[in-house]
């Protein structure tokens, strides 16, 4: 077992973990952050995307021990959990019907936030490429793209950043 200290959604966590423990299992089964789901074995689907030290990563393809000393932000820490306290990206996904079953949504939102941090005013093509690491089976992506465009407009208008 290895001792690790990780900040998860602003809270300091300390645990002894097996070296092979995947970060996503650490988040879900140890810390209890079950809002980040798992959709594949090969890092293709992006459902497990979280922010690690300010960058989007796939938490199924990182070991918990590699997160030692780092800062993880999940969908659960992106904003408050009441409707009046949503991140602009969350709000935009709801406004634009950018989700159906919602399973890909946490990862999609975290990837989209990261995209806008690097490129606050992306074109449609840049949005599509920016979320190419996240698969959705319900929406056909049409409304997800609209949601990211809407969030970009709203965030550049209000100066909000993730």
């Amino acid at each position: 077992m290895v001792s690790i200290n990780v900040t998860v959604d602003g809270r300091s966590e300390s645990h002894d973990v097996e070296p092979r423990l995947l970060l996503v299992h650490y988040l879900r089964d140890v810390v209890g952050k079950v809002g980040t789901p798992i959709g594949c074995d090969t890092s293709n689907c992006g459902a497990c995307t979280v922010s690690f030290n300010g960058q989007s990563i796939k938490s199924c393809s990182m070991l918990a021990v590699q997160a030692d000393g780092g800062d993880v932000l999940t969908i659960e820490g992106l904003a408050g959990t009441v409707e009046t306290d949503l991140h602009p990206m969350q709000e935009a996904f709801r406004e634009c019907h950018g989700l159906q079953c919602g399973y890909c949504t946490p990862g999609m939102i975290m990837a989209a936030c990261d995209l806008l941090k690097e490129n606050p005013n992306p074109s449609e093509a840049e949005i599509r490429e920016g979320i190419e690491g996240n698969l959705c089976r319900c929406t056909g992506y049409h409304n997800i793209v609209r949601a990211v465009q809407t969030a970009a407009a709203s965030m550049s208008g209000t100066g909000v950043s993730s």
């Binding site: 789901p37 969908i75 959990t81």
Partner: peptide, 19 residues
């Protein structure tokens, strides 16, 4: 109308079986 089910899905307050 925007969907009632979205609030919990966009904030990670979900009840997938594995959760």
């Amino acid at each position: 109308l925007r969907r009632k089910e979205d609030a919990h899905l966009i904030t990670g307050q979900t009840r997938w079986v594995d959760n």
